[in-house]
Design a protein around this nucleic acid. Sequence first.
RNA 1: GUGGAUGUAGCUCAGUGGUUAGAGCACCGGAUUGUGGUUCCGGGUGUCGUGGGUUCGACUCCCAUCUUCCACCCCA
Length: 454
Amino acid sequence: MAQKPSIPKGMRDFSPEEMAKRNYIFNTIREVYALYGFSQIETPAMETLQTLMGKYGEEGDKLLFKVLNSGDYLSGISDEELCQRNTPRLAARLCEKGMRYDLTVPFARYVVMHRNELTFPFKRYQIQPVWRADRPQKGRYREFYQCDGDIIGSDSLLNEVELLHIIDDVFTRLNIRVAIKLNNRKILSGIAEIIGAPEKIIDITVAIDKLDKIGLDKVNEELREKGLNEDAIARLQPIILLDGTNESKLNTLRNVLAESETGIKGIEELEFILHKLSCQPLKAQLDIDLTLARGLNYYTGAILEVKALDVQIGSITGGGRYDNLTGVFGMPNVSGVGMSFGADRIYDVLSQLDLFPSDSLQATQLMFVNFGDKEADVCMQHATYFRAQGIRTEVYPEAAKMKKQMGYADTHHIPFVALVGESEIEAGKIALKNMTSGEQQLLTPEEAIKLIAQ
RNA sequence: GUGGAUGUAGCUCAGUGGUUAGAGCACCGGAUUGUGGUUCCGGGUGUCGUGGGUUCGACUCCCAUCUUCCACCCCA
């Protein structure tokens, strides 16, 4: 007897109901992207390791799923090499492909390869799974979907504004209340500059990012450990604890960063975005948040992150401006701004708040009960007609007991059941039962369609 | 990758070093051959995650391994 089957760690099956809910999310995001003039692309599940390696830092390289070469993958490898057991080097010899880790790097590769076909600015969205050999936890999987949208080949800050509107539209449609956190990498750089530790920018942002989690004392402690002197830490305090309206935050920053050209530039960028948004306000609340650093260090300008207000969960969307997306692939000076919706976390939010609209879950609208061969023939013809009219229709395939057939309709949440037996056939009508109210009436097919369609 | 928990029926979980492993819900059959979601009757559907070990005897104790979960790391 075969063992119980299983699936790899951190990967999931999706039931019909889960798929319906997931598609509701994907469709919403797709529609909004399309409304803003984005076009969809897809890239392969695997990329060459040459494309993937070294793009996500040391940590990222470890988390890449590598794919063993096909065929005689040991040919050309000596026993000596095998015995050395140098895992990274051996992996490089045995694997030349890897599973995509995110959608941004494959997109950069895509842009470089297709640069002659593209007209810039290029606005693309991409909804595909990515794979990471991370240790799974709740809400963290080894296979999950990202829904990326990027605008590349344009330095205009209007793109940032547009992304914020897209985010606002998506979450408005999904009925999720969110707060959008906004920051600018240039401001963070300016801060590092002012306190005289520009090379510590990563350490500082990582430490500041933990404020919510570990508190001010621990953050300062960590800064100390990272080699910042007391004077620098002291100068950081007002920045770490910055509070008030977005406007007052920017004013405070303007004073603190007066001597940093970069910092002032960052402030001006944020001011521009806020000004544009004041003409066309968002429904979501928007906060300037300096603790927002984002792990990835390729961002160079605006950084954004979205949190759900009514559910305790990590960020459900993130993004920002990067100046040199394609540089590593030999195509310099392509600037872009992009973001990624975290579909799996959005799913969790909608589930917890019970916000999936019921019509997004409904599949079949009408089921014909099967009374036997002769009746079924008539039902099949009716079904063809109903389908042609756009009604999602099925005919129960067996002349099972009425109880079983009704039970089937019930568990599948089919709102209408049609009963067509001898007497109905004779009258040329169908008995249409509303499964919610229990009411039943004798109707012509046309009348039935009208009733079901409303 | 580091540290710590967890795994018994489809689901949520009881259970004891000793016969044949239980409950609720779900599910299946019947009451009911043209009417579901209510009711009544009947049914346990399981290699107790997997593989070893200790023992007269292991679901229970030990080891390994896998899964899921928690914290760190990192992140969506």
